[in-house]
C-alpha cells in the first residue's frame, strides 16, 4: 500500500514535469524565439577589427543632471550645458561650478576665457565664473543653432533650422551668412535632414563645416566660399552611414577630425584629407544607443564624449604604441 502511494506520487510528478517542459517549449521566452527573418543585419557593421581601435576608454564621468545638451573643453575643464543649467567639471569629474540658466541652451563653444552659449532666440557670452557678459538676439523664426566655433573676433554658428552658417563679430554684429551654395543657381547647399549640423576651426584657423546630407566635411574661406571638401559614404568603418553624418565633430591638436555618428553610433578619427585614421569607440561601446555623442577635445588630445543614452561623459585616451 505504501509503495503504491509512492508510485502514484512519482507518476503524477513525472506527468507534471512533462507538462512543464511542453509548456516551456511553447512559451514566449526571449531565448526561445526564432531569429528575426527580417533582420537588416546591422550587427555586421557593429564589429570593428580591434587593430583599428587606437583609443581606450580611461574614465567615465557621471553627472547628476539628466538632460544634458552639449559639452565643450576650455580653461582646462569641461563645460556641460543642459536643460536650464551650465556646469564646469574638472577632468577628473569634480564639480567646480554650476549656474542655472533661465532657458534651455542648444550648443556651447569656448574660446580662451569666453564661453558662448546659443539659445533658440539669442547668443550669450559668459565669463569663467558663470556670469553673463553679453548677449545678442537671433532674428527670425525656425532658428536652431546646433554648433558654434569662435576665434579672437569672429563666431561662426551652424543654424540647422535654416540650413546656413551665420558669421558674427563677437560684439553681436551679423557679418555674413552662407548656405553652402557655390553660386546662386546651385540647387542645394547644406543638406540637413535631421537636427545635426556642426562646425569647427582647425588649429591653423581653417573653418570646416559638416554637410551631413552629403556625408561631407567642407572647408570654407572666412567669406563663406567653398575651398575644399571630402566626403565618405559607407556603412563600413571608413565612412559615414545613414541619412546624415557625421553628426558631431571636433578637431585634434594635429588637425585631424574626431567624428561622431548617430544610428550606428561610433566615434572615429579622420585625417585632414578624410581617410580613416583610427577608431576611438566602436558601435559595441554604445549598446542600444542611437544618439550621437557630443564631442570635446582637451589640449592634450584627450577626447571627451557626452553620451546622451548612458548619461555620462566618456573619456578616451590614445593608446601609446
Amino acid at each position: 500500500m505504501k509503495n503504491k502511494g509512492i508510485i502514484l506520487f512519482l507518476t503524477l510528478l513525472a506527468a507534471a514535469i512533462v507538462v512543464i517542459i511542453l509548456l516551456d517549449l511553447r512559451s514566449n521566452r526571449t531565448d526561445l524565439r526564432p531569429d528575426n527573418p527580417y533582420d537588416i543585419g546591422l550587427d555586421q557593421y557593429s564589429q570593428v577589427d580591434s587593430a583599428l581601435i587606437g583609443y581606450r576608454e580611461v574614465l567615465n564621468l557621471s553627472l547628476n543632471e539628466k538632460d544634458k545638451k552639449g559639452i565643450a573643453f576650455g580653461m582646462n575643464r569641461l563645460w556641460v550645458i543642459g536643460v536650464n543649467f551650465i556646469q564646469a567639471v574638472s577632468t577628473e569629474g569634480a564639480m567646480l561650478l554650476k549656474k542655472e540658466l533661465d532657458k534651455t541652451p542648444t550648443s556651447i563653444t569656448i574660446f580662451k576665457s569666453d564661453i558662448y552659449i546659443s539659445f533658440n532666440d539669442e547668443i550669450r557670452r559668459y565669463a569663467e565664473d558663470g556670469s553673463q557678459l553679453f548677449s545678442w538676439p537671433l532674428q527670425g523664426d525656425s532658428i536652431l543653432i546646433t554648433g558654434m566655433a569662435a576665434n579672437d573676433s569672429i563666431l561662426y554658428t551652424a543654424d540647422a533650422g535654416k540650413r546656413r552658417v551665420l558669421k558674427f563679430r563677437t560684439d553681436g554684429t551679423l557679418l555674413a551668412t552662407f548656405d553652402g551654395k557655390r553660386e546662386t543657381g546651385d540647387l542645394h547647399g547644406f543638406i540637413i535632414p535631421s537636427p545635426y549640423f556642426d562646425l569647427a576651426f582647425t588649429p591653423d584657423g581653417e573653418l570646416w563645416v559638416v554637410n551631413p546630407g552629403k556625408h561631407a566635411l567642407e572647408n570654407y574661406t572666412p567669406e563663406g566660399r567653398l575651398r575644399g571638401y571630402w566626403n565618405r559614404t559607407s556603412a563600413g568603418i571608413d565612412g559615414f552611414s545613414g541619412c546624415c553624418g557625421p553628426a558631431q565633430i571636433a578637431v585634434l591638436p594635429d588637425g585631424s577630425f574626431v567624428t561622431a555618428e548617430k544610428g550606428l553610433v561610433r566615434i572615429k578619427v579622420h585625417q585632414p584629407n578624410g581617410d580613416l585614421s583610427t577608431v576611438v569607440a566602436p558601435p559595441s561601446k554604445f549598446p542600444g544607443g542611437t544618439h550621437a555623442p557630443d564631442l570635446a577635445v582637451g589640449d592634450n588630445g584627450v577626447i571627451y564624449a557626452l553620451d546622451f543614452d548612458q548619461k555620462i561623459i566618456r573619456v578616451f585616451e590614445k593608446i601609446k604604441p
Binding site: Y45, A235, C243, C244
Partner: peptide, 12 residues
Amino acid sequence: GYCDLCGGYFKP
C-alpha cells in the same frame, strides 16, 4: 528628412 540616402529604403 526626404533624404536621398534613405536608411529605410536602401540596404546598408
